[in-house]
Every structure is written in C-alpha cells, then in structure tokens.
C-alpha cells in the first residue's frame, strides 16, 4: 500500500521554483534512496514533506496514508508518523536530552489520543533503545546535541526515530560529517528499524551510505525532478559515471 504519494509537486522559495513537478510513490516497508547533485532539490523535498516554513507549494499534492499532508501543521505530521532525521541536528542548550525526548514523545502520543508515558515506563523504554544503539546514559543527561560529536548527533537522531516509531523516516544526508565507523553505527541503527510497516527515504550524494543501508529503489534527481528510477544497481552506476549524464535529461 502506498504510504507516501508525491504528485507533480511544484515548490518555490522566495520567487524561485526549486521543484518543477516532482512525482514519487513510496510503499510501506520500502527503502528508497534519492540521489542527485547539489541544488537538485533533494533537501527541499524533505523539508516540504516535514512542513518546514519558507517553502511555497504552488502546485501538486502530497498524500500520506491517503491524507493531504500539506493541510497539516508540522507537529501534526510528526504525530501521524513523519520523521525527518536532520542533516545538521540543532543544539538546544539547557534542555536535557532526556527531557526533550519525553516532552516530544508525550506530545505525539497526546496528539494521537494515546495516554502519556509515566516516568518509569519512559525511562525503561529509553534505556532499552539507547542500549541497543550504544548510547551512554550520560549523553541523555546533557543538553540536546550540545557538545555532541557528529557521530553522537546522528545517533541521537536514530535514537529518536527508534523511540517515536514513525511510519515514514526521511534521512537527510545522514552520512555528512561522519567517519566510516560512526557511519556504520548509525546505519546499523537504521537497519534495525526496517520493518514491513515502515518506509524510509534516504537522501544522499554518495553511494557509500547505500552500502550500509541497502535501498529497494533508487531515484536520481536533477533540477527539481526525478529523472530516473531503478533498483539498487542504479546507485553503483551513478558512482561510476557521475550525475552529468542526467543533466540533459532534466
């Protein structure tokens, strides 16, 4: 079943059109990779799906579980199961990571009409998940991402993904700023979350990440459109021949 349907999406930022009619369908359980050069509109797509302010959708639609996503506030989208793992996770000084996780999780649960976690239940859940991701308890006491290394920041994103159990995960350039070991740890975390009910959209420049998170479908974006789609071998092909061949196609 189609989880996410992006239809002929046109998006402007400050009078300049970035996406010129983008179409993409992601089914439950699938992992899609979106590749493309700088400025092809990959991050714009992820931001528009998550509902970041500053983007104007001029045409097209986005359906999530059959509902019009563009009609929802960004926090409603989160509660419905849309999760964006940020390329550059922000720092929030003075707010302990644990507090942040609990506040966010309970806000989502409340929005869905579910009961909020009690403190002991929440702590149990966080310990369980953080242990599987090799996240020390000490990190949870620090301010959100404050003084975290690049690898710790990305692991914190994966931790949240695991806690919130979203049905759609968008990973925006998860590999940026990570060395090979940090990348492997983060990717292992992501792989552990693959499930028949959950879909993932992995945005990346490089094929390297896809060695660790193996996609079902690969899309190539150029100049605001998807110009080619294929299986995982498409990524290897791109690695060998570069994006130049698609520039004309766009």
């Amino acid at each position: 079943m189609a989880l996410l349907e992006v239809k002929d999406l046109k998006v402007r930022v400050e009078e300049r059109e970035i996406l010129h009619g983008l179409t993409l369908t992601v089914n439950e359980g699938e992992v899609h990779a979106i590749m493309g050069p700088n400025g092809s509109g990959k991050s714009t797509l992820s931001h528009v799906i998550a509902g970041k302010p500053g983007y104007e959708v001029t045409d097209g639609q986005i359906l999530f579980k059959g509902e019009d996503l563009l009609e929802m506030d960004p926090n409603e989208r989160a509660a419905k199961g849309v999760f964006l793992a940020f390329q550059y996770p922000v720092e929030i000084p003075g707010v302990a990571t644990m507090t942040f996780l609990r506040t966010a999780l309970n806000a989502q649960r409340k929005a869905r009409g579910e009961s909020e976690y009690s403190t002991p239940d929440f702590l149990r859940k966080v310990r369980e998940v953080s242990k599987s991701l090799n996240i020390p308890q000490d990190m949870l006491k620090r301010g959100v991402n404050v003084g975290f290394s690049g690898g710790e920041k990305k692991r914190n994103e994966v931790l949240q993904m695991a806690l919130f159990e979203p049905s759609l995960c968008i990973l925006d350039e998860m590999d940026s700023g990570l060395d090979i070991d940090a990348l492997r740890i983060a990717a292992d975390g992501v792989n552990a979350l693959r499930s028949p009910k959950r879909a993932m959209v992995v945005i990346t420049h490089y094929q390297r990440l896809l060695n660790y998170i193996v996609p079902d479908v690969v899309h190539v974006m150029s100049k605001g459109r998807v110009v080619k789609s294929g299986g995982k071998e498409l990524a290897l092909e791109l690695e060998a021949s570069g994006y130049a061949q698609f520039e004309d196609a766009a």
Partner: peptide, 29 residues
C-alpha cells in the same frame, strides 16, 4: 532560532511548547 523551533516542532511539539522548552533551557542556570 527558526531552525531550533522547527526541529522541536518536527518532533511533535506545538510552536508554543517549542518556545517554552527553548526558553526554559535558556534560563536554566
């Protein structure tokens, strides 16, 4: 920062909850 607010909102907080959280962090000391 707009980016900090959006980060919180993407995690399920309303705009006002996000501001409250960030400000409480700012004044923690």
């Amino acid at each position: 920062s707009e980016d900090v607010l959006f980060y919180c909102i993407q995690r399920g907080l309303s705009q006002e909850e996000a501001v409250g959280l960030v400000v409480n962090g700012f004044v923690k000391d």
